[in-house]
Design a protein around this nucleic acid. Sequence first.
DNA 1: GGGCAGGTCTAAG
DNA 2: CTTAGACCTGCC
Length: 290
Amino acid sequence: MEYKIIEDGNQIILKDMRNFNPKHIFECGQAFRWTLEDDSSYTTIAYGKVLNVKREDRDIVLSNTNLDDFNNIWYDYLDLARDYDEIKRELSKDEILKEAIKFGEGIRVLNQEPFETLISFIISANNQIPRIKRSIELIAKHYGEKIEGTDHYSFPTPETLSKAKAGDLKEICRVGFRGERIVETSKIIARGDLDLNKIFHLSRLEGKDLLMTLPGVGPKVSDCILLFAFKKADAFPVDVWVKRVMEHFYLKEETNVKLIGKYGAKLFGSLAGFAQQYLFYYARELGIGK
DNA sequence: GGGCAGGTCTAAG
DNA sequence: CTTAGACCTGCC
């Protein structure tokens, strides 16, 4: 580990932290509960806690936390055990990825909570980031628990969401036609008919088959959940942006998403998920194909 | 006002 | 097994 960890009051400071750019990490479409503050730091609610993250020169400052939470929660959540220099070195053998990495050099893939990730990406279907974020905040506010001493709310449990009315989700939380899918999926999880934690021990393809039995979870959403919550780094979610960037730089012709998914998985192998994040950020920054 | 956005589901071919 | 159409919503 090339950086140093320092505890200072309610802060944890990662000294000389490389491969960690908050904008790249929190605005690359993998997480929806990070908000940009006036001081250009980012705040999130996860694992029932509120965390603020700020880059200060060469350091990353995590505020409103302590060493215990850092070790038990944030170290894994922020994927701090992973060697991104090595990943970038490997992926840079590909000339296009080498360019993409220049844009999103500070990207990391977060390890998020399974149920929240599941519901969040059901909401993401045929949707836009600002609206996805708003719906998730509204769901937390109406169905989650207030976090003591703050104005923030945790994301609700499967049990709570399984008792929600699809109509309320639609009218109050603005999720539209995804309301039924959210309730039905929550019921399946709450009943224990599908044990999400089991997926940690499955291969990507086995996990994908299991997730796709849930209402609202198709090929793209399942890959996102596998990558962002279950550490399946070989998952290669193909959304419209990845489709555009792959067609533009690699395939040179219109190609259906299923084929692009196979192509990416084969080309990038066990690092496909990281490649996808760099390419996604690159495509959006450049507005490729728009 | 019609079109479209970080897909999925359904009903057909 | 591949492929159109519909689908909530909010902003252009």
